[in-house]
């Protein structure tokens, strides 16, 4: 079943030195509960595409549908996780950050507390429910952000390089955790990264974008069983294929 349909989408920024075409004729379908990674060099329009799906921007050409309805703005059917740790509200504890979306929906106090607890447990942070963001490490803050984006039960999870600012060891750990969370919640995930190994580890399918303007150059299905072994030959073979599509050393 097609959950997200991106059809011939183009986007143009009104830059200071004339219009910049960030995306041209991008067509991608994402199935329900699929984990899709967008990879590409820096500046090829990954963030732009994600912001279009999130509804922060609207396409200058083409259209985007979610569950058959055209996207016109943000909505509670999508949760967003950014790269910046500062996305958490510093004046709220981890628990209260996770509650925010439920609060906006007008959920009762009991339901909020219970749901937030459940999602903090899911990202293995139940012990830190009462901590303020500045008391948590970068990896923990990103886990809170994931819990926060999941707590109000959106069908789609949009993630923009959420682990790019973490050290390598923490990143590995977070990737394993994310696969577990995904397996448990069965969300449709659109995940942006410039790290090929990360994409192969996480994704059911990898879409490769080329820069200036951003267009789809490859669509690779990763047919490896999970949990995946990043040192296996098959894994390395996928990496080689995708790097080849990126044109060079990625």
């Amino acid at each position: 079943m097609r959950h997200i349909e991106i059809a011939k989408v183009g986007y143009e920024y009104a830059g200071t030195a004339g219009p910049v075409t960030a995306l041209r004729e991008v067509t991608v379908d994402v199935a329900t509960s699929e984990f899709l990674c967008l990879v590409g060099r820096s500046g090829c329009g990954k963030t732009t595409l994600l912001n279009l799906v999130a509804g922060f921007l609207s396409p200058t050409r083409g259209e985007i549908r979610i569950s058959g309805r055209i996207v016109t703005g943000h909505g509670l059917d999508r949760g967003v996780v950014f790269q910046d740790f500062a996305q958490l509200f510093p004046w709220r504890t981890a628990q209260r950050n996770v509650e925010f979306g439920l609060e906006m929906r007008g959920a009762g106090a009991a339901e909020r507390t219970e749901t937030a607890r459940r999602f903090l447990r899911l990202v293995d942070l139940e012990r830190f429910a009462g901590a303020y963001p500045h008391e948590l490490s970068g990896g923990m803050q990103q886990r809170v952000a994931i819990a926060r984006a999941l707590a109000y039960n959106p069908a789609v999870l949009l993630m923009d390089e959420p682990f790019a600012a973490l050290d390598a060891l923490t990143r590995d750990e977070m990737q394993r955790l994310l696969v577990d969370v995904w397996a448990e919640t069965r969300k449709t995930v659109l995940y942006v990264t410039h790290n090929v190994a990360e994409a192969v580890y996480l994704a059911d399918r990898v879409i490769v974008l080329s820069p200036h303007p951003g267009t789809v150059v490859a669509d690779v299905r990763v047919a490896l069983p999970r949990p995946r072994d990043p040192l296996s030959l098959a894994f390395l073979e996928y990496q080689r294929t995708i790097v080849g599509h990126l044109g060079g050393r990625g």
């Binding site: 999130a54 922060f56 943000h74 909505g75 509670l76 999508r78 949760g79 967003v80 950014f82 910046d84 500062a86 996305q87 958490l88 509200f89 004046w91 925010f100 979306g101 609060e103 906006m104 929906r105 926060r148 984006a149 109000y152």
Partner: peptide
């Protein structure tokens, strides 16, 4: 980014003001 996060979680103008701009 705080405002964006709040919007993504369905906050309206008033809620953004009360729950994000004021404490921020």
């Amino acid at each position: 980014i705080w405002i964006r996060s709040a919007i993504a979680m369905g906050a309206g103008e008033r809620q953004i003001f009360r729950k994000v701009v004021l404490p921020g």
